[in-house]
Computed example of a mutant assay.
Amino acid sequence: MSFSIKGRTAIVTGAANGIGLAVARHFVRAGANVMMADSDEAALDREVAELSADSERVRMFAGDLRQKLAVANLVSATVDAFDGVDILVNAARQIGPTAPLDPDDTSVADLLEQNLTLPLRLSQSIARRFVKQAEGLSDDDDRIIGTIVNLSSIAGRRAHPELLGYGMANAALDQMTRSMAVALAPHRIRMNGVCVGSVLSNSLNLWLRDHGAARAAILGATPMGRIANASEVPDTVQYLASDASGFVTGQIIVIDGGRTLLDAGAVAAH
């Protein structure tokens, strides 16, 4: 089987920074057509300009994908630009604290909306597009017609009260990945996940700036003794998006330097 995604069309959300941007850049280098989606239009403009040598294979969509109309417009814009879509990477993530005992704290609902409802709604929309694109294929044609990869966090596997909403959302996203994979399999659509530990991103850098002792605590809780770079994630995403993983669905691959193998105590997960 081939790891190639050359000539395929991918939508990558959260593509203005962090892991989403790393995935988008990697996919472009791998020869894919990429629709970079994010709410940060200025950052998208800068990134697309840097990829100007590949301008025919890169487009951008700026909008709030929590809105149903924006999701529909993103799918339409991708199809208009590239005549279809083959891969969805749900990499848009929002991290924030929760006050667990404060009934007026709305962060749980907000974080569930961004980290769970958004990828669910977009996955459903893309899955319908995959099925439409497959109309006319013979019944004995068992080719995969589309793949979806969800980015989640080990915060969903550890108990961190200060990250209640974020942890809940990521645990639910992993379960969504497994359940949706079963629902989509008869339609020849695969869904898998990549669950990451601490990865150097804008949000983590800001968090470490405000929590001076956190870096040492994270390193001490990680057997490999370091924080990952965003560039270490895209190869795994490409594997799950390619034919090399053609019989893999509903699986969550963990990239955390061994962190979830240990009792990390109350160290914050990002």
Rank of each mutant, 00 (worst) to 15 (best):
M1W: 09
I5Q: 03
K6D: 08
V12Q: 02
A15L: 08
A16H: 08
A16D: 07
N17S: 15
N17K: 12
G20M: 10
V23R: 03
R25Y: 14
R25Q: 11
H26Q: 04
H26W: 14
F27A: 07
V28W: 15
A30N: 05
G31Q: 04
M35Y: 09
E41S: 08
R46N: 11
A49I: 06
E50A: 12
L51K: 01
E56I: 04
F61R: 02
F61K: 02
A62M: 10
G63K: 08
K68G: 02
L69V: 13
V71I: 15
V75W: 08
A81I: 04
F82N: 01
D86I: 14
A91V: 11
R93K: 02
T98M: 09
A99Y: 01
A99N: 07
P100L: 06
T106A: 15
D110L: 14
N115F: 15
S125A: 15
R129S: 11
V131N: 01
G136N: 05
G136C: 07
D139Y: 11
R143G: 13
G146W: 15
G146Y: 14
V149I: 13
V149F: 11
S152I: 08
S153L: 09
H160R: 11
E162K: 08
E162C: 04
L163W: 15
L163C: 00
Y166N: 00
M168F: 14
N170L: 02
N170R: 03
A171H: 10
A171L: 10
A172D: 12
D174L: 05
R178T: 08
R178H: 08
A181Y: 12
A181V: 08
A183H: 09
P186N: 03
I189M: 05
I189K: 02
G193E: 11
G193H: 03
C195W: 05
V196L: 07
N202T: 14
L204K: 07
L206Y: 10
W207K: 09
L208K: 01
A214E: 15
A217T: 00
A217G: 00
I218T: 06
T222Q: 07
P223A: 06
I227L: 12
A228R: 00
A230L: 06
S231N: 07
E232Y: 05
P234G: 04
L240R: 02
A241S: 15
A244V: 06
S245H: 12
T249E: 13
Q251G: 02
V254S: 06
D256F: 14
D256E: 09
D256R: 05
H270Y: 15
